[in-house]
């Protein structure tokens, strides 16, 4: 990352904190409604140091990673099938759109009922929320392959596997990574929604504990900050991998 980029990020952060401080000062909101940034920072450090956040963080992270892997993996297969088979597209499209249109908030309690409050339910919720954008990105990416290249491949008697690995996947990668950027942040949302529907541990549980049981609003904000940092970190990992495989865009 260049020095100017780092400087921009630092300036944006300073601006955000300044704005937050200004809103606290002007509105006069007490800390139980809107704590000032330094109080949240202090609580965040204490929660990290005393081990309050760690077990919840690992739980959420496992749900996100497993859910993203399951959702993205199946979306790649279905997305490819959608791109290459009109029949599959006709058969699956209505269900995919219906799934996307159904709020995950409404599905989460049902999934918790069917699969229990453990890891499996959360992984399924994450996978569902990741699936649609990833499948559509894959479909668009595969369809974007230059038809003349495919024609050339056929004329050279390239096998299906060779066409896939040398033409379709490289051409579709930018679009697939676009879907991954969206999907990985949605997976975090899915994990939190799943935890709200019933869980023993996780950052979503800690938000509710801080809010409704401990009345520790700075801890709630510190947990929200942790959730945001998880999303940012995962997004950046996808960007780094994308740059290695596709190059900067």
């Amino acid at each position: 990352m260049s020095r100017s980029t780092l400087l921009s990020v630092a300036l944006a952060l300073v601006g955000f904190i300044a704005l937050w401080t200004l809103v606290v000062a002007v509105s006069g909101f007490p800390p139980f409604i809107l704590p000032p940034p330094w109080q949240v920072a202090d609580r965040f450090v204490r929660a990290i140091m005393d081990g309050t956040i760690a077990p919840h963080l690992w739980t959420t992270l496992s749900e996100v990673l497993l859910g993203f892997a399951a959702g993205a993996g199946s979306a790649l297969v279905v997305g490819y099938a959608l791109a290459r088979s009109a029949l599959v597209e006709r058969l699956l499209s209505p269900y995919l759109v219906a799934l996307q249109a159904t709020p995950i908030l409404a599905l989460a309690p049902l999934i918790a009922l069917w699969f229990g409050p453990g890891l499996l339910g959360k992984v399924i919720i994450c996978a569902l929320i990741v699936f649609f954008p990833m499948a559509i990105a894959t479909m668009v990416g595969i369809r974007s392959v230059d038809a003349r290249l495919l024609e050339l491949g056929r004329s050279l008697r390239a096998t299906r596997r060779q066409v896939l690995l040398t033409l379709e996947v490289p051409a579709a990668l930018p679009s697939i990574f676009g879907g991954m950027r969206v999907g990985v942040t949605l997976a975090v949302v899915g994990a939190i929604v799943g935890e709200w529907a019933g869980a023993e541990r996780g950052l979503g549980v800690l938000v509710n504990l801080a809010r409704g049981s401990l009345f520790d609003i700075p801890l709630m904000f510190a947990t929200l900050l942790t959730i945001a940092l998880v999303g940012i970190a995962l997004y950046l990992i996808v960007v780094v991998i994308e740059r290695r495989l596709v190059g900067a865009r």
């Binding site: 809103v23 002007v26 509105s27 006069g28 909101f29 007490p30 139980f32 409604i33």
Partner: peptide, 18 residues
């Protein structure tokens, strides 16, 4: 922020937003 504060009427307790 000022509007949010003002809409609740005058604060009369230890909490400005209360």
């Amino acid at each position: 922020a000022v509007a949010c504060r003002g809409a609740d009427g005058p604060a009369t307790s230890e909490s400005p937003a209360a």
